[in-house]
Amino acid sequence: MNYYAFTSLFNGIVVFAISFYLFSRQRQNALYQSCAFFSMSVGLWCIFYALWQVQTSKAEALIFMRLAMVSCYPIPFAFLWFVQQLTNSHPKPWLTTFLLSSLMLFMILGFTPLMVRDVAPVSGFDYWPRPGWLMNIYVPIFFTLVLISYGLLWKGYHAAQGMRRWQIKWVALSLLLGWIGGATNWCLWYDIPIPPVAHIFVGVGFLLLFFAIVRGRLFDIDVITDLVQEAKLSALGIMATSINHEVRNPLFVIKGLAEMHLEHLQGNVYTDKEQMAEKSKEMLQKTILQAERALEIIRNFSGYAKRQSSKTFDKQALDVKEILESIVPLVCSELALDHIRLQMKIFLSTSS
């Protein structure tokens, strides 16, 4: 058994062990399912890769190489699915359909010369695969999906906080080692004289991932639940602060109106009952207006919390005199504490 067969067998055993561990932990959890499927695809590829390396005839080497590649085709697709589950990304349905259709096409044609045309001596290997024309389409898709997945990890890392951020970072760095080691196998396919000596990094990368799963509680449901609860409490605190700031203003106006009206009643400012009734009516109308304003603010926050559709606002003319008259009582109440009297005079312009 040569170095490449041994390292592939090592990689396969490590990755298969991780996939079985994930299946045994949370079979119904989409995050565990996606990671297990990704690991199983890599594990199958490594096992058939090892068997291909020990073949002594061209026909058998071609069969095992095609088996290895059929196991390899789902790897970038499964990795993208895993990353989407980890970062809570939601792809568009048409994109998912396109990717699944492409994967099915590659796997169905995987045993034909369209994908692996032949095996031939290359750089010391007796039976290295030669690509068919359809493989020239698959390889760019392979690297594109990996880059898209790491783009989602990058975006998710910057959007996450605390333990979740550490989880995404560990997945990205540990599996990057495996991707680098595995990607070196493509070089000799296209006569680039770089042997896949870093192939063993596939198993090393998955070992680091397994360490994070077991010791770092990488996919621990309790950790994720705590993070969600922490985010909810943080959002609740922000919302409570905003409500306090927005509702306080109309409440102060209501308080000012009530205090001013009470002072007028106690000071016998009103000369007769008709004037008192008129002023009382005016104060109550302004109080109701401010109360409705406070209720509208609360309704807006409730709609936000329920994630209702965004509300549109129409332009409308405002009566500046009415706005000032609703604010002045509050100012007067505050200024009266310092024995300051405020008078308001509004000059209405008749020009257009």
Rank of each mutant, 00 (worst) to 15 (best):
G303C: 02
P93Y: 05
T97M: 11
M40G: 03
L109Q: 05
Q26K: 13
F23W: 12
I18N: 01
I168Y: 06
K92M: 03
N136F: 01
E263R: 13
I200G: 10
P76S: 02
L289Y: 12
E282S: 15
T350A: 15
L265T: 11
K279P: 04
Y150C: 09
F98C: 10
L44R: 00
E246S: 12
L145R: 01
E325D: 08
I224C: 10
F38E: 06
R307F: 01
D222F: 15
C72L: 00
G237V: 10
G124F: 02
A172V: 00
V14H: 00
K155V: 14
G162T: 10
G237C: 13
R130I: 12
T271Y: 10
G124R: 06
F79C: 04
V15M: 06
D272M: 02
L103H: 06
F98A: 14
F38V: 11
L145C: 01
P329V: 12
F10D: 09
V204F: 10
Y127W: 08
L44S: 01
P131F: 07
G237S: 15
V14A: 02
I238V: 14
P76V: 08
A78Q: 10
L209T: 06
R293D: 12
M276L: 13
A30E: 14
V139S: 07
F82Y: 04
S102R: 09
P91C: 06
Q161G: 08
A17V: 05
A317L: 13
A294T: 03
L342T: 00
L62C: 06
V70S: 05
S234L: 13
T87V: 07
V204H: 06
S302V: 07
R299C: 04
L109R: 02
Q285L: 13
L209Y: 10
K92R: 05
F143E: 04
L100F: 13
K58G: 08
S174C: 11
P250K: 07
F313L: 14
M1H: 04
K232T: 09
W170L: 13
P121H: 02
F106S: 04
S8V: 04
W154H: 09
E292F: 09
Y32R: 01
L22I: 05
G237R: 15
G203K: 07
I200L: 15
W81S: 07
K345Q: 14
D118R: 05
L289H: 14
A294D: 01
E296S: 08
S57A: 10
V42T: 11
A235Q: 13
A36V: 05
E322K: 13
S123T: 03
I75M: 11
H199S: 12
F211T: 09
L233E: 11
T241A: 14
L44C: 03
F347H: 01
D222T: 15
V42G: 09
Y73T: 02
Q33R: 03
T184C: 05
M65L: 03
D314W: 04
L176D: 02
S57M: 05
L100P: 05
A231L: 12
S333L: 00
G216K: 07
V197D: 08
P93I: 11
I148E: 04
G303K: 05
E60N: 13
I148Q: 05
S8A: 12
D220V: 11
V328F: 08
L173G: 06
T144Y: 12
E325F: 09
N136A: 03
M135C: 07
I141T: 00
D272I: 00
V202T: 14
I243W: 00
T97H: 12
N29Y: 07
R25S: 10
K286R: 14
Q290E: 12
I340S: 06
S280W: 11
F48R: 00
